[in-house]
Design a protein around this nucleic acid. Sequence first.
DNA 1: GGTTTAGTATACCAAATGGTTTAACAACGA
DNA 2: TCGTTGTTAAACCATTTGGTATACTAAACC
Lengths: 119, 119
Amino acid sequence: MVADASPQLDRVFHALAHPARRAMIRQLSYGERNLSELAAPLKMSFPAATKHVRVLERAKLVRRRVVGREHLCRLTAAPLEQATSWTEQFRKHWEARFETPDALLEEMKSEEQPRTRRS
Amino acid sequence: MVADASPQLDRVFHALAHPARRAMIRQLSYGERNLSELAAPLKMSFPAATKHVRVLERAKLVRRRVVGREHLCRLTAAPLEQATSWTEQFRKHWEARFETPDALLEEMKSEEQPRTRRS
DNA sequence: GGTTTAGTATACCAAATGGTTTAACAACGA
DNA sequence: TCGTTGTTAAACCATTTGGTATACTAAACC
């Protein structure tokens, strides 16, 4: 089980919650990129872009490697796995519960009665 | 393909980026809950908790149904699917690229040469 | 040595986030 | 009708977020 209270998970989901950072992740999925390359397609200043990179680093989604004056970034899969496994543990679960025809029938019945019993 | 620039995706990831909201999702995965039940286990005031519920609603992760004075919440699977499918489209991809023995070898070679060619 | 090029650091700003307290309202039960 | 329960609304506050502009450092190139 993946716990709900996890600063690491907070950072990963937060990192994914901005289009600029998602765009960076997409770029990095094609291979290593330096900061200028990551910043170029974005409609914002260079310093703003590097702040987004730092958010990705804090979430451990990106690792940085300095070569001369270049800072090369690459992706790390592990945090994504952690995030996906958190969501997966419920998705099927509640989908099965509420969105199959049988479950819907169950629902309609339970609305007459008190209702689904609590934990 | 799921686009990177998507306010809906922003809202879903942002909704998942807080432990209180993830705890609510876990509770809701066991069935419908009213606002008091969702707020009870959290170490914060009731109004604070209901604000978190609204964040989940904006992300369309939760639907609310008013019955008398109770506001009953239940989960919706679709937004989670969308989020998962966004991450999945890269995960395998870069995993294959960087974390297999072959890819590592490729990496080590490419560090002598210019490096992976850009898009 | 001087000039690009790559990136950092700092100061600053507006808006959003996450929380509080207090007050109000609406529905249900005695 | 009166008290309790479930919930909203408003005002307020501190911190974080996401952006800017400017100044600076360091490596690479001629």
